[in-house]
Design a binder for these strands. Structure first.
Lengths: 232, 232
DNA sequence: AACCCACATTGATTTAGATCAATGCACGAT
DNA sequence: ATCGTGCATTGATCTAAATCAATGTGGGTT
């Protein structure tokens, strides 16, 4: 995709309707366009906060802990806006799961420009609150769930986010490896694999190759995910 | 504290300078004022997102998982703004650690009003991004750290947030119990207690009664926290 | 179509932290 | 001041998941 088209995709998703041409142009002038191959880490924390828009493909935001341990903090798909912090207790890097097209902005300039258009800050705020909500749900899983509950809730969440394949509502193709899933759920590859096998033998899922997954019993999975809905 | 004073504290902290009188009044008209005693859960998820401002005291945001397991998603102190989600996979409740004064807003009305003043949305966005950053750091701890690293990073973080007692930079009084700390770090009370003892015997901290903690060696604690800073 | 290699699965063993069980102590109530 | 209760500490045992160790397999490459 050519750069102008890339930026247009960002504009359509994130800039509110009726944004002024001036703002539009100023955003474009601070944007940096990057294409990344699967496995690349096009961005590493470099002391300045950044904001990335995922125009196509999918990414993971990874934090490094000591001794080579890694924690996947979030996965992102086309249309997502990612805030990448830099002055935190852990180094973060954004990493492509599949080939990706990304639009980068320095966070300070992005936020300053956003303030020119009131609807724009609101849009970014909405997205930030959604990201916060997802992060909190992940916190619950990491802190208080068993391996099986973690994987079950992961699959239910991903089913919502990556959407259906070829019309079947409960069929999806996951771009991340077992290692990525483990690093996201605080588990090892082996435990993830064993839980996949377990869910398979319980008749809740079917796998096809390395990335194909069909949820045979969404309600059953939710029941095993340890969710507790708010009382009405 | 009387309600007008309570609201004023919110206005000073969150409303940007020079906000119009009209907006100021409209905010006040949708606000609900609540005082809570230590241990109270003045707010339980009820189907509508809410925003709470902590005027005084401190709170925890707790998510329920199945079988009575609880995860503390965040702690809050005077001056903090909390977003309380409702339609998530887990039921959340805000709970007072000490006697508290709170100002509640329905999230939809709060956000609509915020858009009347561009600086206001920006302020809320800044706070949301800070909350997101904290939540991500917590994710790293929960997913990839040992009990000792979890407690060490918790203490370092709290030292930043609750600040100093009586001039001593590294002395603080924590409002939360061992149970709360465990529910925040994904550990049991016993493990938290054992790690307190361990850090004590390593000469890194000193405890005084149930809530007093002195960090004797902040650098030593950070070294045991498993942090990995971004390379310059 | 056959090959290769990284990824995934399965099995055996170990271990960090949970659970079960007393004991100790802080701090508010009397 | 003392008392009693709930919180914290310490100890013994158990277990879910990690680690160590092969073996299998999907999917890209030639």
């Amino acid at each position: 995709m050519a750069f102008p088209e890339l930026f247009e995709r960002f504009a359509v998703e994130v800039l509110p309707l009726g944004v002024s041409d001036g703002t539009h142009l100023r955003f474009q002038s601070v944007a940096r366009f990057v294409t990344a191959r699967a496995g690349d880490a096009p961005f590493r924390g470099n002391g300045k906060d950044q904001i990335a828009f995922v125009a196509s493909g999918s990414t993971k935001l990874v934090a490094q802990a000591s001794q080579g341990r890694e924690q996947v903090v979030a996965f992102h798909f086309a249309g997502d806006l990612v805030s990448i912090p830099s002055s935190t207790a852990h180094a973060y890097s954004l990493c492509a799961l599949e080939d990706c097209e990304l639009v980068y902005f320095p966070a300070d300039k992005f936020l300053a420009l956003a303030q020119e258009e009131s609807g724009m800050v609101a849009e970014v705020l909405t997205r930030a609150l959604r990201a916060l909500e997802r992060c909190r749900e992940k916190t619950v899983a990491l802190g208080r769930k068993t391996a099986q509950e973690k994987l079950a809730s992961f699959l239910v969440t991903m089913n919502d986010r990556v959407g259906a394949v070829e019309g079947n509502q409960q069929e999806m193709s996951l771009p991340m490896s077992r290692k990525d899933i483990g690093d996201s759920l605080g588990l090892t590859i082996e435990t993830v694999s064993r839980q996949f096998s377990e869910l398979r033998s319980l008749g809740l899922i079917e796998t096809q190759g390395r990335s194909g997954i069909r949820l045979l019993d969404l309600e059953g999975l939710k029941a095993r995910a340890g969710h507790v809905l708010a009382a009405a």
